[in-house]
Design a protein around this nucleic acid. Structure first.
Lengths: 213, 213
DNA sequence: TAGATTGTTAATCGATTAACAATC
DNA sequence: TAGATTGTTAATCGATTAACAATC
């Protein structure tokens, strides 16, 4: 119903509205917001109107109200329990990232298959053996499964998540997971992000070289 | 010239071609690739044709040849020197991620302002005080600047990068950096990624609730 | 009331898909 | 040569932008 293009803009609105609140601005027009955020005023109004009439003609938008609406739309009025599978660099970074806890994301378990990591404590949470994952998920309601294992093991972990009824996966492994239609996967493919950077860094040369041929 | 939509697909082609090579497949048609990668065959041919005629009628594409072409297009035939500013969770995770080094990305320096982190060794590289950053950049040719400091300090770091002539920034701070037109910024906004996940997890409820009103 | 700015429809633009002639 | 599959043009689809009547 709502296009992915719109959905991906929502968190950015959320972020800019948070900043307006920090700066004690309590009213904003689509035109003003447009100048800050870099979308057209028209697009901003279209986007908001997907979800309701949040503005007021002649006035604009009440910042705090709009912020609350978008928070609700993003599902930030709930708490989420998560598990992290893979306690390597990225897994630990996420586990240590306290900002997520403030936003309502709680880590209920961290798992790894490396015996050197099992038993390690990351912010009060002891890393468990991944063999215990399935049992753990039977006894604990988990909303979001986070995958930060190497590529080769990622699908196996996803399968356990799916089997255990997890409906949302945040995947850091460089692979496209296969899951049923009712399971949502959000990928963070760091390597792909970096390669778009190098592409753009070289783009000019690329076409200059082609001309020479 | 090449649209961002195409550019963002390139690393995915690269990844799938690497897998085909691992599986000893040396020829593939756009139709077969389409079934694996999930883009239409038409789109795949359009994408490749932005950069040249890599295929052959009646045959398809030579996997290794295509892989090499896309590697070159992505700028992977060069080495890149990088610095990481911010030696917290994410900074350390990136520094420890050895896969990048295999792809040709070398970390020449890590900086932080926290005295507790300064002096720490991450894979042979000693974390330096961020005060030394500008001098360091004067004496070392750096291609990519990586920002993994908190939001409040990110723009300041970006300014130093720009001033020092760095043309590519990989930014992990939750902020849109302001840089001149000739500087490329690639953002990894983890929080925004997570919020699109929670949005989709709640989307069904969202519209069910609206109906009740 | 007059000015401002929204909500919303219509027009435009760009990206994806379909079709097919070219050609290996 | 016949079959397969590309490269490329044309058609379609979806997303963005422009315009303006509604209304605070």
């Amino acid at each position: 119903m709502i296009s992915m293009a719109v959905i991906r803009r929502l968190p950015k609105y959320h972020r800019y509205l948070a900043e307006l609140i920090r700066n004690d601005i309590d009213r904003i027009s689509s035109k003003e917001l447009s100048e800050k955020i870099g979308f057209t005023a028209s697009q901003i109004r279209q986007d908001f109107n997907c979800f309701g009439d949040f503005g007021q003609q002649g006035y604009g938008y009440n910042v705090r109200e709009l912020y609350n609406e978008i928070s609700r739309i993003l599902g930030l009025n709930t708490e989420y329990s998560t598990v992290i599978v893979g306690a390597g660099n990225i897994g630990q970074a996420i586990a240590n990232y306290t900002r997520f806890e403030k936003q309502g994301f709680f880590i209920k378990g961290i798992f790894d298959k490396n015996p050197k990591l099992v038993g390690l404590k990351i912010r009060d949470i002891e890393v468990k053996d991944v063999e215990e994952l399935e049992d753990f998920l039977k006894n604990n309601k988990i909303d979001i499964g986070i995958i930060s294992v190497p590529r080769e093991q990622a699908q196996k972990v996803a399968n356990i998540f799916v089997k255990s009824g997890i409906k949302a996966i945040w995947n850091f492994a460089p692979i496209d997971l296969e899951v049923p239609d009712d399971v949502i996967v959000e990928n963070v493919h760091l390597s792909e992000s970096l390669l778009t950077l190098t592409y753009r860094l070289n783009e000019a040369n690329l076409f200059a070289k082609n001309k020479q041929k």
